[in-house]
Amino acid sequence: MKLPDLDYIRPGTLQETIDLLVAYEGEAKLVAGGQSLMPMLAFRLLAPKILIDISRLPGLNAIDIGPDGVRLGALTTWRDIERHAALKTAHPLLAAAIAHVAHYQIRNRGTVGGSLAHSDPASEFPALVTTCDADVVVHGAGGERVVKGSEFVLGAMTTSLEPDEMITGIRFPAWPAARRWGFEEFARRRGDFAMAAAVVFYDLDAGGRAADPHIGIIGEPERAVRLAAVEDLLTGRVIDRDVIAEARAIGEQAAQTSDDIHTPAKYRKALIGTMIERALMTAAGLELRPVAA
């Protein structure tokens, strides 16, 4: 399982990086933390001519918190997020969801940009980007462009990045302090990819009803998606146990799942419903129902 024959270069600037991407015409791969790319190379699922190491490009690993929201440089690692005390209030959902990403050693190297570019349908970060309406900032030969989070990931391991482009940052919209949220994930073991997860948040209107609910799920084969049917159900409702039970049922119904070796489609649908239920319970501050024997 040795890497295929490949060259390596470490450019010093973003512009050099873009120039290299242009010069190699799609036969180069960017590497930063390498936590998704390196296993694919070890299995020789990819054979790029060259790896362009962007891990030391300046200015791409900052976490900026401002009135407009949270901006993560593409080279921000999971551990950077974990250690950033202010993020826990500035974007508590982000901090909580990231706690599920992989293991200690991988968290030290893995980057948000790498995760998003890799776009594994079972990984947390693309689901956050999709559900939170984050913007993805991309640089290429044509300069900078901003891609809406929901339009960035096209399918499993497929993004809207052009061969001459790289992700430089992700911008999450501002997070109101009173926002209700929940994140629930189910994996075989600690740190494994999610079999199903639910990313939920909503604001409360003056009457204590859910406003602008966002319900994202992991569990569909191509990518994380938002479930409009559940969001429609919750809009303008007081989130109580009955509504949550309904949301679970509708979510289970709406999710499009398929079989993989560890997860039959039918089971995964049910699991998605359960994750939605549990995430909404957390968001609403409700205890999971203790049931007497």
């Binding site: 189910f186 075989r188 079999m195 560890h262 997860t263 039959p264 089971y267 049910a270 699991l271």
Partner: peptide, 10 residues
């Protein structure tokens, strides 16, 4: 496995 046990129940 979780899916097996879930199937046993459901």
């Amino acid at each position: 496995s979780p899916s097996k046990v879930w199937s046993l129940i459901h």
